[in-house]
Amino acid sequence: MISLNTCEGRLYLSSDTMCKSDSTTKLLQQIHTPEFLNSIKCSGVPNHELFLKVGTPIMLLRNIDHANGLCNGTRLVVTKLGNHVLEAKILMGDNAGEKVLIPRMTLTPADPRLPFKFQRRQFPIIVSYAMTINKSQGQSLSHVGLILQKPVFTHGQLYVAISRVRSRSGLKILVCDNDSSRTTNVVYKEVFQNL
Rank of each mutant, 00 (worst) to 15 (best):
residue 66 H to G: 06
residue 138 G to T: 02
residue 21 S to Q: 01
residue 122 Q to Y: 03
residue 79 T to S: 12
residue 110 A to P: 00
residue 83 N to T: 04
residue 45 V to Y: 04
residue 131 M to E: 07
residue 12 Y to S: 07
residue 123 F to G: 07
residue 21 S to V: 00
residue 87 E to A: 11
residue 51 F to V: 08
residue 190 E to V: 00
residue 124 P to H: 11
residue 5 N to P: 11
residue 24 T to P: 00
residue 148 L to M: 11
residue 69 G to L: 01
residue 194 N to T: 00
residue 59 M to R: 12
residue 129 Y to C: 09
residue 102 I to C: 04
residue 84 H to Y: 13
residue 190 E to A: 04
residue 36 F to C: 01
residue 37 L to V: 14
residue 138 G to R: 08
residue 61 L to C: 08
residue 84 H to G: 02
residue 145 G to H: 13
residue 89 K to D: 02
residue 105 M to P: 05
residue 66 H to T: 15
residue 179 D to E: 13
residue 79 T to I: 01
residue 114 L to N: 12
residue 63 N to P: 07
residue 14 S to H: 05
residue 101 L to S: 13
residue 167 S to V: 10
residue 19 C to T: 10
residue 29 Q to C: 13
residue 11 L to D: 08
residue 93 G to H: 02
residue 57 P to G: 05
residue 9 G to Y: 05
residue 45 V to S: 05
residue 114 L to V: 07
residue 70 L to H: 12
residue 195 L to P: 01
residue 73 G to C: 07
residue 36 F to E: 07
residue 161 A to G: 12
residue 155 H to F: 03
residue 72 N to G: 08
residue 8 E to I: 07
residue 96 A to C: 06
residue 32 H to F: 15
residue 183 T to K: 10
residue 137 Q to I: 11
residue 113 R to S: 14
residue 68 N to F: 04
residue 161 A to T: 09
residue 121 R to Y: 09
residue 149 Q to K: 11
residue 45 V to L: 10
residue 169 S to M: 05
residue 82 G to C: 06
residue 131 M to Q: 04
residue 110 A to N: 14
residue 76 L to C: 15
residue 46 P to D: 05
residue 22 D to I: 07
residue 193 Q to H: 10
residue 26 K to T: 15
residue 81 L to C: 14
residue 40 I to D: 09
residue 134 N to Q: 08
residue 180 S to H: 03
residue 155 H to I: 10
residue 30 Q to W: 08
residue 140 S to T: 15
residue 155 H to E: 11
residue 102 I to F: 01
residue 165 V to L: 03
residue 24 T to Q: 13
residue 100 V to P: 00
residue 162 I to W: 05
residue 142 S to A: 14
residue 18 M to Q: 07
residue 23 S to F: 00
residue 113 R to F: 12
residue 169 S to L: 08
residue 130 A to P: 06
residue 158 L to D: 05
residue 143 H to E: 12
residue 163 S to G: 02
residue 161 A to V: 06
residue 107 L to I: 15
residue 66 H to C: 10
residue 145 G to T: 05
residue 191 V to R: 14
residue 92 M to C: 03
residue 153 F to N: 12
residue 184 T to Q: 13
residue 30 Q to S: 09
residue 185 N to H: 15
residue 172 K to C: 14
residue 24 T to A: 04
residue 168 R to K: 07
residue 143 H to Y: 09
residue 159 Y to C: 03
residue 87 E to P: 00
residue 184 T to L: 15
residue 188 Y to M: 10
residue 126 I to S: 14
residue 127 V to W: 05
residue 122 Q to W: 02
residue 133 I to P: 08
residue 57 P to M: 06
residue 153 F to C: 14
residue 146 L to A: 05
residue 148 L to G: 09
residue 136 S to A: 15
residue 69 G to Q: 02
residue 78 V to Y: 09
residue 116 F to A: 03
residue 139 Q to S: 10
residue 186 V to G: 01
residue 24 T to C: 04
residue 165 V to Q: 03
residue 51 F to I: 05
residue 38 N to A: 12
residue 145 G to R: 11
residue 158 L to Y: 11
residue 82 G to V: 15
residue 76 L to K: 11
residue 75 R to V: 01
residue 34 P to G: 06
residue 54 V to R: 04
residue 173 I to H: 01
residue 195 L to C: 04
residue 26 K to Y: 08
residue 20 K to Y: 03
residue 185 N to I: 11
residue 95 N to F: 09
